[in-house]
Design a protein around this nucleic acid. Sequence first.
DNA 1: ACCTGAACACCGTTCAAGT
DNA 2: ACCTGAACACCGTTCAAGT
Lengths: 196, 196
Amino acid sequence: MTPSTRDTLMAAAAELLDEGGLEAVTLREVGRRAGVSHNAPYKHFADKEALLAAVAARELTNQGAALAAALRQDPSPETILRSALRGYVAWALAHPARFKLVFGFWSTNSAELAAAADSTRTMLIDVVAAAQRAGWLPAGDPERLTALLQAVTQGAVDLAISGHLEAQGKGHASPDDLVDDLLDHLRASARVTSRV
Amino acid sequence: MTPSTRDTLMAAAAELLDEGGLEAVTLREVGRRAGVSHNAPYKHFADKEALLAAVAARELTNQGAALAAALRQDPSPETILRSALRGYVAWALAHPARFKLVFGFWSTNSAELAAAADSTRTMLIDVVAAAQRAGWLPAGDPERLTALLQAVTQGAVDLAISGHLEAQGKGHASPDDLVDDLLDHLRASARVTSRV
DNA sequence: ACCTGAACACCGTTCAAGT
DNA sequence: ACCTGAACACCGTTCAAGT
């Protein structure tokens, strides 16, 4: 079962992305690595952007699959939530160029990408709602609370990748630390709310 | 007092950035708009990246100046903090391409950029520390709490720009809403902590 | 159906030359 | 000191042609 040219092209693109960032991904080099001519990609993708969107969609789909797998193990909502956010952070730090790509293409209208993002978000919202019922997260619209958690995770990774977390003095806070800090504050906030 | 060619070039670059994003900024078009040849920029900037870094640094410096001005009015730390974060969000939403540029260049080693970022961060930390002393924010390392606030702000803007906040159902949470949510939770958390 | 080679327009950058 | 025009290498994309 030899991989299709399409898969070979996507693999080459991902490889170049990891090695030298988005600017290193040229169709000509992708073709070279895939062992085809510099315009063979046009037989499999509409243009360069479509190839990149496909790579981004695959990353996001993998991300969603990992979360779905964690859900199937059915531990506590807290465990799932923490490990989901940690998994996202770990992936982003290990492959910053892919992270930037996925994120840069979120706005582009790729049906595949939108579907993957939506599926992941829905799973997250369910976990958050379960954590709220357990009194582990403060009450309120679960969609909005999920957005807050996604925002911290996204922002913490951004700060880390751009080196603005190491710039700190003793703190040396990692993205995971910031996510944990928020979760701790939210738990404390949940206790206040439930008392009132 | 006619503006220097250097300033004209930076203005043209910022204009193109706002109009068509980073990909619309070509040295040739910058030169065209500035009324000089396509390689005149090389007499004022080392290369294209240096021109973009200068534009990014100016944006960040303006941001810092706005915060400094707010500090001079000396209202309560809560007011300063809220308006500082709101100001940042408003700027990012009004000029998403500049926001992406500044952020994408944070990692690049531009002394001007690093200095501007550091100055702003220091001011923010002071405000956070003051808010902590007022019992309005939970205790703990002010640098780390500032990083948390920056992460949420950054991430909320990212989500908004990429259209993943409007994707929400009824919520329709804006970045400002998310930042406010965080501040509310932190205030609640501060009350818990002070009671223990 | 899939691939190739030549060609086109565009870009960043360099260089010799002008004032 | 600042600017110009020609030139070079590179890229995305298109097209006619091959199997």
